[in-house]
């Protein structure tokens, strides 16, 4: 399957390994998708570079209102993190929904993003949360907004043979903000979603009006899709059922799901999408109100 398995000790060590060879080395963290792809011949490589023992990539912390999640942090760590539940709940909810406990124990959140599957739960949450990823190469690092990361189905704009995503950066919720994630699923574990929706709301003082709302939905396009028209409708408006309903239908109008023999028709997904968006918005608003 592969000939070399390299345990990188630092980010620079991993990058130099990637760049010294013929350019076919692949980074492995949890490997829950990669190893299957290699086994089934969908991907090929001679060398794997394991980044899970690089100390700085194991970081999960918050400083000055910024949450940082290193590339070796697993779904289980995020799903169990009080810090994430308190400051970016949609992400904890999404991380908890991936695969099974065994998978969550090794699969990383950054891997979930980079693998670029259309319905990656944490990527949907991170899109609503306005996250950025830090990409390192031999010349330095750059931060890229998660919206800009997707090239096509299964393809991110990170060049994994040359670059390494070191962490994901999320602005922590402020007092007037919260987020929520829902998933339409055929069973409660080990199933890809029929739909997943994440919403982050920021309310104006007095909690009567939306300051702004970010809505991410999937799988309705190559990557998590922002319901930008719905977001525009809600921006600065008074919070009421009517406007939320209007925005939810606008989100569906922007979505472009496919027909799937396994996970539901396009028609069905478009029909139920507004209800899920509404639930997300309303619950997120309620969570802000509950903060006091």
């Amino acid at each position: 399957m592969f000939q070399e398995y390299y345990m990188a000790e630092s980010v620079s060590d991993a990058l130099s390994f990637l760049n010294k060879g013929p350019g076919d080395a692949v980074i492995i963290a949890g490997g829950t998708d990669l190893l299957l792809d290699l086994h089934e011949g969908k991907k090929r490589t001679k060398s794997l570079v394991d980044i899970t023992r690089i100390p700085e990539l194991k970081n999960l912390s918050m400083e000055d209102g910024i949450i940082k999640i290193g590339a070796a942090v697993t779904h289980a760590q995020v799903a169990e993190s009080e810090l994430i539940w308190a400051n970016a709940p949609a992400l904890a909810m999404a991380a908890k929904k991936v695969g099974s406990l065994q998978i969550r124990n090794i699969a990383t959140v950054v891997g979930n993003i980079i693998n670029a599957q259309p319905a990656a739960d944490t990527a949907v949450a991170l899109t609503a949360l306005g996250a950025k990823v830090t990409i390192a190469d031999t010349s330095g690092t750059r931060d890229v907004h998660i919206d800009q990361l997707y090239e096509d189905v299964g393809k991110s704009r990170v060049d994994c043979r040359r670059e390494l995503v070191t962490e994901v950066i999320i602005p922590a919720h402020e007092q007037n903000q919260s987020s929520y994630f829902v998933r339409l699923e055929q069973r409660k574990a080990l199933a890809l979603p029929m739909l997943n929706i994440a919403v982050m709301v920021s309310l104006e003082k007095g909690q009567q009006r939306f300051e702004w709302v970010r809505i991410a939905m999937a799988p309705v396009g190559p990557g998590p899709m922002r319901a930008t028209n719905a977001e525009r409708i809600l921006k600065g408006t008074e919070i009421d059922d009517e406007i939320i309903t209007k925005a939810a239908y606008e989100a569906a109008a922007q979505a472009n799901p496919r027909d799937s023999d396994l996970r539901g028709s396009r028609e069905y997904r478009l029909q139920v999408l507004p209800a899920l968006v509404k639930r997300c918005i309303k619950t997120a608003v309620a969570q802000v109100v509950n903060k006091g």
Binding site: R187, K188, A189, L190, L262
Partner: peptide
């Protein structure tokens, strides 16, 4: 496969 065929899990 067990992935595609929707047996209820312990969670269900």
């Amino acid at each position: 496969s067990y992935h595609k065929y929707l047996l209820p899990t312990a969670m269900d």
